[in-house]
């Protein structure tokens, strides 16, 4: 299950790829929506670690426009519920992720992203 919370933490780490290597772009993403338990405390605690623009852009590419472009200062229930859905309930089961810098493709199969590199690609 590549959820957007995990996607927001993954960057390309191929040899010599150190800038503009995030966020990875989903391609041919097959989505599944699975309900998860709402946990506002977790969301509030995790918010500072999120790259907001990357999250909003990625959600929009996957068809979810519920998040505002700017991270709000007031964390009301409606916002947290939308954030919960985007981060934790949208699962990318199949497809791939492409590095915006070097074009390396990381496939996703059965919900597990393959971030392995071949020996010659390791920095």
């Amino acid at each position: 299950m590549v959820r957007l919370i995990t996607h927001n933490l993954l960057a390309c780490h191929a040899k010599d790829c150190n800038t503009n290597n995030f966020p990875l772009a989903f391609k041919d993403a097959q989505l599944e929506i699975r309900e998860a338990e709402f946990n506002p405390e977790f969301l509030k605690g995790f918010l500072p670690k999120i790259e907001w623009t990357a999250l909003v852009d990625t959600a929009r590419q996957l068809g979810d426009t519920s998040l505002p472009l700017e991270q709000p200062e007031m964390l009301d229930d409606e916002f947290l519920k939308n954030l919960h859905h985007v981060l934790l309930e949208i699962h990318v089961e199949e497809g791939s992720m492409t590095c915006p810098n070097c074009g390396h493709v990381y496939p996703i199969s059965n919900g597990i992203p393959n971030m392995l590199l071949a020996e010659h690609e390791i920095g």
Partner: peptide, 25 residues
Amino acid sequence: RWTGIQNKVDINVVNGSLATPFGFR
């Protein structure tokens, strides 16, 4: 992944080496 589901722990699994997929972020 299966063991997480079996034990009701929400685990995010990445097929990768050491911590390299998360090293930048």
